[in-house]
Design a protein around this nucleic acid. Structure first.
Lengths: 337, 337
DNA sequence: CTGTTAGCGCTTTCAT
DNA sequence: ATGAAAGCGCTAACAG
C-alpha cells in the first residue's frame, strides 16, 4: 500500500524509519561523515528520494553553529555600482553551498550597525560590507562575533580584512589624460566630501594639476552626490556662474552621465567642445553616446575578491588580497584641445 | 565583581540566569506572549542589555517553523531591470522583520527549479520569482510547500499568485506614437522569442501597424537579446542589408541604448533622422543623450507589490493585486517625420 | 559499521 | 504570573 504524501516536509527521522535504519546513519550518509554499508546506503538513498527529503538547514545550523549563509551589506540596491559588485559576489558564492542575504545600509553608519546586528542575530557565518562608513573600531567590535570583509578601506585584523582601490591614482590618471590633451581649465564634479573615495579623487585631481603647473581654481570644482542629477546641476551651476572650462572630470560615471546631458542641452558638443571623463566604468558606460572615457574600477573583481577572502577567513585561512588596479579606459568623450 | 564578556554570544538561558528568572519568562517578555510582572520585566531587560543578548533566529525558526526569511529569485543580478524591482522588494520588506535571500535563475527554468529547492531547504517562508520561466505546473507543485508570488504571468492558485504587465499594450502605445508622428517604416529590435514578454511586445508592434494600415515587413524586425550589444548589432544588420526606416522601436531600453550608439556611429541623428523608442524606462533612461522616449514599466511597484502580496499570502490573506499600468513616456528621441 | 543518547537555543503546553 | 519539561530537526560523541 502506498501512503499519500506525508503531512509536512519529511524529516531525517522519517527517512530513517522508511529505510529501517537509525537517524545517525542517515546523517552520516548525508554528510559523508563515516563509512556506511552499501545496502543501507541504497535503502536510505531510496527513502530520501521517495519521501522527497531535504535537510532542514535551520536545524543543521542550530546544531553545527554555522548557517552557510553570509550577509552582504550594500549601500543602495539599485545602483549599477553595487550591482556589478554583487555580481562578483554572486559568482564567488556559486557552488559553495553558501547563500547570501543582502541588506541595505543607505550610506548611513547607524543603519549599517543596525543591519550588522540583524545579520549577526541571523547567525550568518560572515559579513561583507561594501563601501561602509562604519568606524573601524565598531567594525572590529562586530568582527569579534563573525569575520568581516570590508571594501573601500585598508584593514588587517585577526578577524577582519579590508582592501581599497587607489582612488587618488585613478583620478590622477584621468586628469593627467586631460592635461596631456592640452586642457588646462578642467572642471571637477566631486562626490560628497564625507565619502572617503570622493576626497581621494579630489586629491588626485589636485595632484595632477599641480604636477602640470596648473593652479588650482576652486571655482572649477562643484560638489555632487554621485548621482546623475548632480552632474546636470553642476554643469548648470558652472555655466550660470560664467566659469569657463574645456574639460570636465566627474567623480563617478553616473554624475558624468548627468553632466553629459546638461552639456547636450546647452548645445555643447562632447568631445569637440568639451571633453568628459568619468570614474568607475559602469557596464553602461561603453554604450553611452558617445562611449564614455573613464577610470575603470574592477567592480566585479572587488565583489569576487571580497567574498573569496571572507570564505577563507571563515575557514581560518588568511590570504593576501589582490585586485586588479584601476586603469584609464579611453573611449570617445575626450579629445585634444 | 564584573564578569568579562561571556565566551560566545549570550543565550536566552544566560539572560534568565542573570535575571534570576526562568527561560520561559524571558521568552514571554521577548515575544509579548503573556503578562509578566514589572519587576521581573525590568530585571530581564537589564540582563538583556548587560549580556548584549540577541535571540538566535535559527533556534527561533526551528521551533516556530518560520524563518522570517523570504527567497527572491532574479534572473540577472546586475541588470538595471531587476535591480529597480529589487529596490521595491527591499522597501516592502523594511520594518517587517523579514530578510531576503536573493538568488539568480539566469533565465533558465532548470536553474530556477534548483534555486527554489535550495530556498525551500532553507525553509524560507515564501518565494518571489521575478520573470521566471518555470512552467506553471512545476511552480504550483513547489507552491504546495511555501507560498509563491511570480511576476510576468497571470496565476491565481490557492498558494500562488502571479501578475503581469500589459506588454502588448505597451508596445502598441510605442508604435502608435511613432505612427502618429508620421513614421511608416518602423524597425523593431525584438527580444528573445522564447521570452513571453518579448513576444507580447512583438504582437503589440504588429497590431499597431495593422491598425494604421501599414503592412508588416519582416525585414524590419531583427532579433535581439535584451542587451545593449544586440541593439548595435541589429542596427548594423539593418543598414548593411540596405533596409530603410525612419524609426526604431527597441523591445527594451538596454537594446535601445545600443541602437542609439550604432546610429551615432553612422552619423545618423536621433531624433532628427531617426526616432527611437525603448521599453522599461530604466532609471538611467531619463539621462541618456538625448533622454529616451520609452514605455514605462513600474518596476519598483512590481517588486513592491510582489513582496506585499507574498507577505499577505504568508499570513493567509488573499489580496487583489494591482500595479500601475504601463505608460508611454515621451522624452526626446522621437520626432515628427 | 551502526544505534543510542544528549543536546544546539528557543517556545510552549501544562501545572501551579 | 511563573516555572518545569518536552521537543522543533539535526549532529556528534559514545558505545558497541
Amino acid at each position: 500500500m502506498n501512503k499519500p504524501a506525508p503531512a509536512g516536509p519529511s524529516t531525517l527521522i522519517d527517512v530513517a524509519r522508511e529505510a529501517g535504519v537509525s537517524p545517525s546513519t542517515v546523517s552520516r550518509i548525508l554528510n559523508g561523515t563515516a563509512r556506511v554499508s552499501d545496502d543501507k546506503r541504497q535503502a536510505v538513498l531510496k527513502a530520501i528520494a521517495r519521501t522527497n527529503f531535504a535537510p532542514n538547514l535551520m536545524a543543521q545550523g542550530l546544531k553545527k553553529g554555522r548557517t552557510h549563509t553570509i550577509g552582504i551589506i550594500v549601500q543602495d540596491i539599485s545602483s549599477p555600482f553595487f550591482d556589478e559588485t554583487l555580481h562578483g559576489v554572486d559568482d564567488g558564492l556559486k557552488g559553495t553551498g553558501y547563500a547570501s542575504v543582502i541588506v541595505t545600509g543607505h550610506w548611513s553608519a547607524l543603519e549599517e550597525a543596525d543591519r550588522i546586528r540583524l545579520l549577526l542575530a541571523r547567525k550568518v557565518d560572515g559579513i561583507v560590507l561594501l563601501s561602509g562608513s562604519l568606524p573601524d573600531d565598531e567594525l572590529l567590535h562586530f568582527a569579534t562575533q563573525r569575520p568581516i570583509v570590508v571594501t573601500g578601506r585598508a584593514l588587517d585584523a585577526p578577524n577582519a580584512l579590508g582592501f581599497t582601490m587607489d582612488n587618488e591614482h585613478g583620478a590622477w590618471l584621468a586628469v593627467r589624460h586631460l592635461v596631456e590633451l592640452g586642457h588646462r581649465r578642467i572642471a571637477f564634479v566631486s562626490g560628497p566630501p564625507s565619502h572617503a573615495d570622493a576626497s581621494s579623487r579630489l586629491r588626485g585631481y589636485r595632484r595632477a594639476l599641480e604636477e602640470a603647473d596648473i593652479p588650482f581654481d576652486p571655482k572649477l570644482v562643484v560638489e555632487g552626490n554621485f548621482r546623475e542629477n548632480s552632474g546636470v546641476l553642476a554643469m548648470n551651476y558652472l555655466y550660470d556662474a560664467g566659469t569657463t572650462f574645456t574639460a570636465v572630470f566627474a567623480a563617478n560615471d553616473q554624475s558624468a552621465y548627468g553632466a553629459r546631458l546638461a552639456l547636450y542641452r546647452r548645445g555643447v558638443h562632447v568631445p569637440d567642445d568639451v571633453s568628459l571623463v568619468g570614474f568607475d566604468d559602469l557596464p553602461g558606460s561603453a554604450f553611452t553616446t558617445p562611449p564614455l572615457t573613464t577610470v575603470r574600477q574592477p567592480l566585479y573583481d572587488i565583489g569576487n575578491t571580497a567574498i573569496t577572502a571572507l570564505l577563507r577567513l571563515i575557514n581560518g585561512d588568511r590570504v593576501p588580497t589582490r585586485v586588479p588596479p584601476v586603469e584609464l579606459v579611453v573611449r570617445e568623450t575626450t579629445k585634444r584641445h
